[in-house]
């Protein structure tokens, strides 16, 4: 089952003006229910435009946006539903915090959904748990927090709406390695607990390799390729030509293969590389002993 499907999406900015700019040229992509999907592409490839299609912030010139089997534009007056069911976390969401306390800020979304107080409370605490925010932080003003903490509050605010599809645009941009691990850990906890679908837009090949089940590559407003990480990262040359690349470790495995070492081709995390080399080296050590 697909949680979200985009079919033949076309979109042009500033149509019929000298600044006309076609951002999406017939994009078709499906995001399977309950998986973490990566969306990658060079600057200007159409990622952000596509993301804004997903919950109806932008209306496609042509094509369909199917959320849980139903075109979100069938009833334009109910488009607000799509905004709750497909939650969008923009880049640098910490700039959008505005409430007096973190708790109120996280509660803003569920409140707008018209939920009762008990349910709002439950959701605020559960979202705070996903992103690892302590209870005492919830009573603080968001402006007293560090950048990484603010980012987690903003993320919790969208998670508290418990959207069927959670879309995140560069969730870890500008964070240090620990901050990145915390943010991605929170996203993973949300996804595993709720079984909901997640879409992550990122420029870091290492991060998508580590956290995503599937990848979709956009290039100049078209889908260049989509599939599992292994299927996509097999095309190193094509990705590099499209302004992207493969994780450093994947490139390193290729260097080893070029030198005659028979390592598997589907390695894109350090852990997998370690296991593979350990297997080869242990085998060799065993062989030498015999």
């Amino acid at each position: 089952m697909n949680a979200l499907e985009l079919r033949n999406i076309e979109y042009t900015y500033s149509k019929n003006t000298p600044f006309e700019n076609t951002a999406l040229k017939g994009v078709t992509v499906a995001f399977e229910q309950g998986r973490v999907n990566g969306l990658i592409g060079h600057t200007g490839s159409g990622k952000s435009t596509l993301v804004q299609m997903m919950n109806g912030l932008l209306k496609p010139d042509a094509g369909e946006v199917i959320l849980a089997g139903k075109n979100i534009w069938d009833e334009p007056k109910k488009i607000r539903d799509a905004r709750f069911r497909c939650g969008l976390v923009f880049q640098y969401p910490e700039y959008q915090l505005f409430e007096e306390t973190c708790e109120k800020d996280i509660a803003f979304g569920p409140k707008n959904m018209g939920l009762d107080a008990d349910e709002i409370n439950r959701r605020v605490f559960s979202a705070a748990d996903f992103v690892g925010l302590d209870r005492d932080i919830l009573q603080k003003s968001p402006f007293e927090l560090s950048g990484g903490q603010k980012r987690r509050v903003a993320l919790a605010g969208v998670m508290a709406m418990e959207p069927e599809v959670l879309v995140l645009d560069e969730p870890a941009a500008g964070l240090d390695p620990i901050g990145r691990t915390e943010i991605f850990g929170g996203i993973r906890r949300y996804q595993r607990t709720k079984g909901n679908t997640v879409i992550i837009v990122s420029h870091s090949m290492e991060d998508v390799a580590e956290y995503c089940d599937t990848l979709t590559v956009l290039k100049n407003g078209e889908v260049l390729r989509s599939g599992s990480c292994a299927e996509v990262f097999a095309y190193e040359k094509e990705l590099t030509e499209s302004g992207l690349g493969v994780p450093q470790i994947t490139r390193f495995m290729r260097l080893l293969r070029e030198r005659g070492v028979k390592v598997a081709e589907d390695i894109y995390t350090v852990d997998a590389a370690f296991d593979e080399l350990r297997r080869i080296l242990d085998g060799k050590r065993g062989g030498a002993d015999a």
Partner: peptide, 27 residues
């Protein structure tokens, strides 16, 4: 990433040098 990999292998007793930063030389 390559440093991390070599460091972990080194800790398992394999004769590699995690202080080499040039990918080609590591390979």
């Amino acid at each position: 990433q390559v440093t991390e990999l070599l460091y972990d292998l080194e800790n398992c007793g394999f004769d590699v040098d995690h202080t080499e930063l040039d990918e080609e030389k590591c390979a």
